[in-house]
Design a protein around this nucleic acid. Sequence first.
DNA 1: CGGAACCTTCCTCTACCGTGGAAGGCCACA
DNA 2: TGTGGCCTTCCACGGTAGAGGAAGGTTCCG
Lengths: 129, 129
Amino acid sequence: MRIGEAAAAAGMTTKALRFYEQQGLLPPVHRGPNGYRDYPPETLARLQFIRRSKAAGLSLAEIRNILQIRDAGQAPCAHVAAQLAQQLTDLDQHIAELTALRTSVAEHYQAASQGDPAQCDAEQICSYL
Amino acid sequence: MRIGEAAAAAGMTTKALRFYEQQGLLPPVHRGPNGYRDYPPETLARLQFIRRSKAAGLSLAEIRNILQIRDAGQAPCAHVAAQLAQQLTDLDQHIAELTALRTSVAEHYQAASQGDPAQCDAEQICSYL
DNA sequence: CGGAACCTTCCTCTACCGTGGAAGGCCACA
DNA sequence: TGTGGCCTTCCACGGTAGAGGAAGGTTCCG
């Protein structure tokens, strides 16, 4: 399978595949006599795993870790579960931060909507921030 | 006021002040005979406005827009209100996306916690993603 | 006079995930 | 033989908000 086919089958670009290889998510692959990459069919499953992992919000670095465990012959499930737990924690914190920020912005917005622009003096730029 | 004093008074670094000047948030400032920047006292209010705006989640580009309006002699309040409204919309969407992702991750995590690693075959890397 | 602490400009680097393009090689079809 | 469509490598760029550091000038204090 050439890179264009593999990319199309996985719903990715050829650029992305080369990038993943460079980043260590795809092992160096066999080349034909013309230098073209020649992917074995099982690469497709790997690419789809990468897709699913990305959809779950994992970074390429985390995905690479998981793949390395699998490539070392071990089941990465425990690691994956830990990673997902971490991901949940991170998401919760991130969401909490954004929610707090939203509250703050909403308060400023309230003030700005109800206030009188004439009270805004040049020195403080804008009284609603 | 020299750059170090101004930075300390505003709780920023000298690097940040030079960067703000370069980005157009601070006007070119008077230099002493030694080339040192010499800030007028009202710069402090401007720096504090930048601080508050950043805390409200505005980008430097948005803050620059507001400052330009003020520097043009107009009250930026209406613009600020619009900016805050946009900010609210963006935050809501961002939070919604993260929340949806959290739900998805939580489902994967549930499966991973309850599942049996032995069922995970090498081909699909990990059945929990 | 010497050293610490300040200032200047300029260049590079950070994280993330690729995308865009240039220059060149290879292959099939008409 | 040409032309279009693949493929190769390598380099640059994007956005965000500065941080880090080099090389050099200045000022303050003892």
